[in-house]
Amino acid sequence: MIEVENVHKRFNHQKVLDGTSFRINSGSVTSLMGRSGAGKSVLLKIMIGLEKPDSGAIWLDGKNLVTLNLAQLNKIRVRFGILFQEGALFDSLNVRENVAFPLKERTKLSDRQISEMVDDHLEQVGLLNHGEKFPSELSGGMRKRAGLARALVTKPDLVFFDEPTSGLDPITKSTIYRLIQKTHAQREMTYVIISHDIRGVMDISDEIMVLNDGQIVAKGKPEELSQSVDPLVRQFLTGSPDGPIKID
């Protein structure tokens, strides 16, 4: 279980997170939604220890990640898998080397074992025949699938997805969501998805949270949220420009 407790973060004079608190249950698929610029990605960076909050705590198995030093944090990070927005594949490595990278860095597996695991994961994401290609030779969807293979190859306990389908066509989006569902069904991992793709996350999430003005303003199962009468949630779900959320 991971718990975010009263997290505050501001950049210069701009308040991004204002007492954000929530809890994510082990083995669940939880989606965090919000407008662009609502602070979702900052929250993700804080949860994985890439950014320090001004105050507040991130609890994981009784440890506050905010107070850990780098060595202690790295021991926890080996349990994480992260799919970054654009895949964040290393330009100088091909797809196979990218997927093998965390295994080579974190484990003492033999080259043969690593190769088998890489093949297995590339097959799962449909990139087995593209292993020798470099990131610059891949489409956006292929980059995300390769990033997904790299995020899952170490069999992490907790996987974070930062906008896994942004900028993709509807078919590729569905493919990515199906892959997320399929891999989650295979292993008991906790998935945290950060997205503003309402329709997509509704289908695959156990729980959805809505972040607005730095706070969680709504939280519940997808069906509960879709029946919510809260004007803010309704506006967010319908995507209407009229309502309590105003675009500056």
């Binding site: 960076k45 990070r77 654009e86 330009d91």
Partner: peptide, 21 residues
């Protein structure tokens, strides 16, 4: 240019998140 591009495309964040200094 190479390191700057890696920073801007989150490749450096990816390294940190994989517990690689």
């Amino acid at each position: 240019a190479e390191l700057g591009s890696m920073r801007n495309t989150q490749q450096i964040d990816a390294l940190s998140s994989m517990a690689v200094d």
